[in-house]
Amino acid sequence: MDVLSAVKSTVLDHFGVTPDAVDSASVTFLGLEPIEILRIPGDGAVHYATLGGSRHPMGDPGDLLADPVRGPRAELVLTLRLGAGPQSGLVRTLGVLVASPSVEGLVLQPDSLIDLSEPLWQGSHFTAVLLGEGEVPATPLPEPAEPVAYFSVTPITATEAAWVRVRGAQALRDAWTEAGIDVTDPGRRAVNL
């Protein structure tokens, strides 16, 4: 079963691009297989999609034996508006996030708050991310494997991360909507909470 080929095909089809229109970079962590980050141009935006997190199912790190087939699988998609300059270090950060199930035993899911406690890219004031339901449709895999889910990645500030811990993810999303915050703007400020 070539999971990554199916994932890449789903992502490219969703964004309506061919492989030659996409840039990619590879991130490697000790003891893990390489993770590829696709950089997909869009209309006034750029989409970063991980390729490698779904290679293995996510599972409970306390299990004595990991099931090599059953269990949730996920990839991450981050969309940023163009025009804010390069985001140096972002590829590595996305690699860290999508590798967190293998390294930290996290199970990625909507409303997950992942706090890295360091800038997501050089010069960024975002230090955490909030995962949400992605727009890319799930990639079906042969039974008994679960489909690959795609989660949106929203960069958030330390203040916004604290808000999520106290009030929940939906309360932060509601505050963004009320304030007219464009979460794809890499230069945006935290919403006044």
Results as ranks from 00 to 15, higher is better:
Glu143Tyr: 10
Ala158Ile: 00
Leu80Arg: 12
Asp185Lys: 11
Glu33Ser: 13
Gly105Met: 11
Gln170Pro: 00
Val103Leu: 15
Thr127Glu: 15
Pro137Val: 05
Val166Thr: 15
Ser124Trp: 09
Ile114Glu: 02
Tyr150Gln: 00
Ala84Thr: 10
Asp13Ser: 15
Asp115Glu: 14
Pro101Asp: 04
Gln109Ile: 00
Ala145Lys: 06
Arg188Ile: 11
Leu141Gly: 02
Gln109Phe: 06
Val91Gly: 02
Ala171Glu: 13
Pro57Tyr: 07
Gly123Phe: 10
Phe29Tyr: 12
Gly168Thr: 03
Glu133Trp: 08
Arg55Pro: 00
Ser9Gly: 07
Ala21Asn: 10
Ala175Gln: 10
Arg92Met: 08
Pro155Trp: 09
Ala179Tyr: 06
Val129His: 03
Gly53Cys: 06
Asp111Trp: 12
Gly95Asn: 04
Leu130Ile: 05
Pro110Cys: 07
Thr79Val: 14
Arg173Val: 09
Ala6Leu: 13
Arg188Phe: 09
Glu160His: 09
Ala169Ser: 14
Glu75Leu: 04
Pro57Val: 07
Leu120Gly: 05
Leu120Phe: 10
Asp111Phe: 13
Leu82Glu: 15
Leu131Met: 09
Trp176Ile: 07
Pro119Arg: 14
Ala149Tyr: 00
Trp163Ser: 12
Gln109Pro: 00
Val96Tyr: 11
Ser112Val: 11
Asp63Met: 13
Pro142Ile: 01
Ser5Asp: 13
Gly62Leu: 14
Thr159Asp: 15
Gly83Cys: 12
Thr159Met: 09
Val22Thr: 04
Pro140Leu: 02
Trp121Gly: 03
Ala158Leu: 08
Leu51Asp: 00
Ala145Asn: 03
Pro68Leu: 10
Gln170Gly: 04
Gly42Ile: 05
Ser24Val: 02
Pro72Tyr: 09
Gln122Thr: 15
Tyr48Ala: 03
Gln122Pro: 01
Ala128Gln: 06
Gly134Pro: 05
Val7Met: 01
Gly168Arg: 03
Ala99Phe: 07
Ala99Met: 10
Val103Cys: 03
Leu113Ala: 07
Thr50Pro: 01
Ile181Arg: 12
Gly42Pro: 09
Thr159Lys: 13
Trp176Tyr: 15
Leu30Met: 12
Ser112Phe: 08
Arg73Leu: 01
Val136Met: 03
Ile37Pro: 03
Ala66His: 12
Thr28Pro: 02
Thr177Asp: 13
Glu133Ile: 11
Arg188Gln: 11
Thr157Ile: 08
Val22Lys: 03
Val107Ile: 14
Leu113Trp: 06
Gly134Ile: 00
Ser112Asp: 06
Val17Ile: 11
Leu78Pro: 04
Pro155Glu: 09
Ala162Ser: 14
Val191Ile: 11
Leu113Met: 09
Val22Asn: 04
Val96Arg: 12
Gln87Lys: 14
Gly123Leu: 11
Met58Asn: 00
Leu76Tyr: 09
Arg92Trp: 07
Leu193Pro: 13
Val183Tyr: 08
Glu135Thr: 15
Ala162His: 13
Gly105Thr: 08
Ala74His: 01
Asp23Gly: 10
Thr184Leu: 08
Gly134Arg: 03
Met58Lys: 00
Arg55Ile: 01
Thr127Ser: 14
Val129Asn: 04
Ser152Thr: 15
Asp67Trp: 09
Ser117Phe: 13
Ala175His: 04
Met1Arg: 12
Glu104Ser: 13
Val7Thr: 05
Leu130Cys: 06
Arg81Val: 08
